[in-house]
Amino acid sequence: MIYELSPQADSTTRISVDYRDEGVALQGTTHVAGDGDAARAYVAVFDRDLRMNYKRLFPTPPAPEPEEVEM
C-alpha cells in the first residue's frame, strides 16, 4: 500500500492510498482533521477498514496444510 498526505487549506489533511503495489486495483481517499502527524497515525486505521470492506479484492493467503496424525 502506498499512501500520500496532502495538507488542505481548511486545517485537514487528505489521505490517498493505492494498492497497486500489491496487485490490487483499489484506491481510497479520506480526510482527517489536523496536520500530517494526525493523518499519518490514521493511515493504518483507514487501511484496515478498506481491507475489511474490500477483502474480496485482496488475495486470500493459502491455508496451512493439516499435519498428518499417525494412528
Binding site: 489536523g34 486505521v45 470492506n53 474490500y54
Partner: peptide
C-alpha cells in the same frame, strides 16, 4: 455500505473508498 473505525481523530465518514 461498509464499516468504519472511529477513533480519537476526527475523520471523514463514508461507506466505500471515498
Amino acid at each position: 455500505t461498509g464499516v468504519k473505525t472511529v477513533t480519537g481523530t476526527a475523520a471523514e465518514v463514508f461507506a466505500g473508498t471515498s
